[in-house]
């Protein structure tokens, strides 16, 4: 790949007084993680309000474009979550997602986006508690990392 003149990610300091609340978009598969999110809800597991779910049928249909679009649209981070390896409703869509996300994590830093802003997890249909924990953990990590500043990225 051609060398790019990469600007480091600017750690944008939020407005004084207002604590930074990250915006996170999550692409989750219908069969496992979306179901787990439902279960977490039914079990009233309070979660950080920062995450917005986008329901996909399978993580295998998450085009890297969608992730980039979410980040450019201002999301501070993107979560992709589906069935455990071997449990994908469509046999192996999640393996394909894993390959794509891995690649994306290698490429995005070249454009100044910290790879930690993308996370791929497996949360099975019965793991409501794991879903809530994943959301809370990720939100805390991104809070720590600070806001994304897409306007200063060479991508735009």
């Amino acid at each position: 790949m051609q060398e790019l003149n990469v600007m480091p990610e600017t750690q944008n300091v939020p407005m004084p007084g207002a604590a930074f609340e990250p915006a996170i978009v999550a692409f989750v598969c219908n069969w496992c993680t979306y179901t787990a999110a439902d279960l977490a809800g039914t079990s009233r597991m309070v979660q950080s309000p920062n995450v917005r779910l986008v329901r996909m049928m399978c993580t295998g249909m998450v085009d890297p474009k969608y992730i980039i679009k979410a980040l450019l649209g201002g999301a501070d981070a993107v979560l992709i979550s589906g069935c455990h390896p071997g449990d994908c409703h469509y046999i192996n869509g999640n393996y394909k997602a894993r390959r794509r996300v891995k690649l994306l994590m290698e490429i995005l830093p070249r454009f100044g986006i910290d790879a930690r802003r993308i996370k791929l997890t497996w949360v099975g249909a019965s793991e409501g508690n794991e879903f809530a924990a994943t959301v809370n953990r990720f939100a805390a990590e991104i809070k720590e990392l600070g806001p994304i500043d897409t306007r200063n990225l060479p991508l735009l």
């Binding site: 939020p14 207002a18 978009v25 986008v54 969608y66 201002g74 806001p147």
Partner: peptide, 23 residues
């Protein structure tokens, strides 16, 4: 399809707009 997912993300981006709002 791509248009539909993009539209959904655009709808969400009101919230994730770079011009951020306090919680």
């Amino acid at each position: 399809n791509e248009k539909q997912v993009f539209a959904e993300l655009e709808g969400l981006s009101q919230y994730v707009s770079p011009v951020r709002q306090p919680a």
